[in-house]
Amino acid sequence: MAELWINKLVSAQKTCLVQDNKRKIHFTFSDGTELVEEYDIKSDELLVRKWKKKSTLGGVGKWEIEVGEQPSQFNLEIDGLAESTANPVFVRKDTKTNFQWRIRNLPYPLDNYKVTAKPDQGKVVISTVNKKYYKTFEIPDLARCGLPLEQEPLEIAHANSTLLISYKKPPAFLAVEKKLQQEFKKLKASKDGDVDCAPS
């Protein structure tokens, strides 16, 4: 399984750019799906991962953010409806050893939350005792590498109206990550600012 994922990334058409101390890589797969990943150049931490898929009818989709946070730029007049900024915000931001999720704007104390892994569905469920927040999410990284989801590596913490959920990365996944990093470092990156533009 892990091999499949690595091969998919390696065989995709890639563009690499180093900018603001980030290595930005853009993948285009054979089915037209696009993927963008951004890594910190020093620590190799994953900062952003987002996908863009074509819809069934052929229209262009929107960027779907898997990791990291992007300033939301919705237009209320065009979209018609947007979640209020006072609502809980769900963001994934990994560290070197953990997958980590932050949910901001959740003022309730720690014993209000229940976070359970459902290995048969491959999903993690966050529920609240006071019925104010509920969310199911997947860990696509584990699914892509064919690794099982377990309850044990899950931990939660709460501070400053933020619920922090971490899941310890399994050793097998760390190995895959390392291998991919080596691949990415081989990519020739064009640097921002000194683009060849020979005036003839």
Binding site: L76, E77, E83, A86, N87, Y134
Partner: peptide, 20 residues
Amino acid sequence: GKLTLKTTEMETIYQLGQKM
């Protein structure tokens, strides 16, 4: 406008545009 929706498990507030 503001629209509050709920399910049995959660509650969310949405902001509404003119069209909505």
